[in-house]
Design a protein around this nucleic acid. Sequence first.
DNA 1: CAAAAAAACTTTAAGCTTAAAATATCACCG
DNA 2: CGGTGATATTTTAAGCTTAAAGTTTTTTTG
Lengths: 177, 177
Amino acid sequence: MSVEAAETLDAEVHLDSESRAHGDHADHKAELRLWLRLLTCTTMIETEIRRRMRERFDITLPRFDLMAQLERTPEGMTLGELSKRMMVSNGNVTGLVDRLVTEGLLQRRQSDTDRRAHYVSLTAAGRRAFAAMADEHEDWVADLFADLAPGELEALMTLLGKAKASVRRSTQNAVET
Amino acid sequence: MSVEAAETLDAEVHLDSESRAHGDHADHKAELRLWLRLLTCTTMIETEIRRRMRERFDITLPRFDLMAQLERTPEGMTLGELSKRMMVSNGNVTGLVDRLVTEGLLQRRQSDTDRRAHYVSLTAAGRRAFAAMADEHEDWVADLFADLAPGELEALMTLLGKAKASVRRSTQNAVET
DNA sequence: CAAAAAAACTTTAAGCTTAAAATATCACCG
DNA sequence: CGGTGATATTTTAAGCTTAAAGTTTTTTTG
């Protein structure tokens, strides 16, 4: 949630760019507004899905996300792999896994070949619970985007793909100024 | 960060839709993939901006966001107004404001006409600090999107605007199933 | 006006999240 | 084999975030 103006700067536009007589650096309000709108969209969707997950299944989004990662990997996955895929810190995964194990939805076992590594997988109860949640989740998302035509969905996918590539390029070059 | 497969489901596609003989509810993998890609993009950008904010200015993103809301409102704003604009809970704003006041970047004062309400505004130091950060922030965002052509930026803005409208419609109707 | 409802804000408890430091184990190299 | 560096994970401290309950003040309404 949040990050700067969100709704405000997103709705209004206030291009007082001409008031900017500063030297070298150009006006990049368009990119800024795009970022804020992107964030607003994501926040709105995330908030709604989180709300429904709690209300309907009494589960948090991070736990659901973690289970989703494990769904198609019956043999399990290491904590490090989970961390990479979920794009969150190692310590975060440790905590989430602990709680899900306590709930009986996950099981962990030490790797036979590497005693540092721990494999995590869904229990039978976990698989059952996830299947039920995933079905509804998919419907919720579909409804959230229901006003977009198929072509618009596709166009958005493509453009977001380009944006993703641009971000990746930007963050991987220029590690420092 | 996170929400489901993110990178995984986003990258792969696995349309095993035909394996879905279940009755009534249609296949909505396209919407699901769109949501995951949207989330991936936002997460990548947010993580990078957060990292730079910490490294360059030793500030958190939520604090920067809050300051951004106050930038163009010298007379200040109530905590409730801040909460609405930032799309976060009231209690969250209370805590952020407390910390920023402690740092000397914000000041609060009780409303003259409503003793429940508190106005918050940037101090001189806060305005100075924000101006410096905002300039660089704008450049960071511009660079993240640098590979998109102007037309693509605009197309993305438009499509995200439609998505936002769709989400708003979906969350405001159908409060319950 | 007095009671009831609403509004603005704070507090609390729980959980999420991260960065950084600490542990433990493994892999490699001489 | 012994040391060095890398890897996998956990722990810690701090901060973010929310929902729900609580406080104070204002507004509405009978």
